[in-house]
């Protein structure tokens, strides 16, 4: 489960916690409270680490396993923060037939992480995406707003090395 346990230490602030507490209080005791509270929590923290899910479970007085069940079910929730550099490898049709799987694999190898996760230093996070609208450049990888096209796996290492 690459998405489930983040390796980045939790750095929540008291302000964030106060905002989450407010949201929880507004939904407490209502049926179906878990979804809106988790959505708000992700908005506040940017992701849903164990620390935040425990706050939700305790606040709503429901088991942590229930919170995690919902968080791990929906693709809209992430349990990893985004890195300083967000890598997105396109696995859309054009990129895919042009060998995007090998590009993704090269990034995974280089960084030692799977899609959906983040390097322990918080520098790189890795995701796959579906079409960035640059099919002519397939296969394509984006790092924040930089687009890299017509990639071969051996170019991946040097490109990543440029990001400090």
């Amino acid at each position: 489960m690459p998405n489930c346990k983040t390796v980045v230490p939790f750095r929540g602030t008291p302000e964030q916690q106060a905002r989450l507490t407010q949201v929880i209080e507004a939904h407490k005791g209502q049926p179906g409270a878990t979804m809106p509270v988790l959505q708000a929590a992700q908005e506040i923290y940017g992701y849903l680490p164990e620390e935040v899910q425990i706050m939700v479970a305790e606040g709503l007085d429901i088991p942590l396993s229930e919170v995690y069940g919902v968080a791990s079910f929906y693709a809209q929730f992430t349990m990893n923060p985004k890195g300083k550099y967000q890598i997105s490898v396109c696995l859309g049709t054009a990129c895919y037939v042009k060998g995007a799987a090998a590009i993704l694999n090269a990034v995974e190898q280089k960084l030692g992480i799977a899609p959906g996760s983040i390097t322990p230093d918080g520098k790189f996070s890795l995701d796959s995406c579906r079409c960035v609208g640059a099919c002519g450049l397939a296969p394509v990888m984006m790092i924040n707003n930089d687009v890299y096209g017509r990639l071969t796996p051996d170019q991946v290492g040097p490109i990543l090395d440029m990001y400090k």
Partner: peptide, 10 residues
């Protein structure tokens, strides 16, 4: 009412 297990992922 312990609830330590549940369905994970999808």
């Amino acid at each position: 009412e312990v609830g330590v297990i549940g369905p994970n992922d999808r």
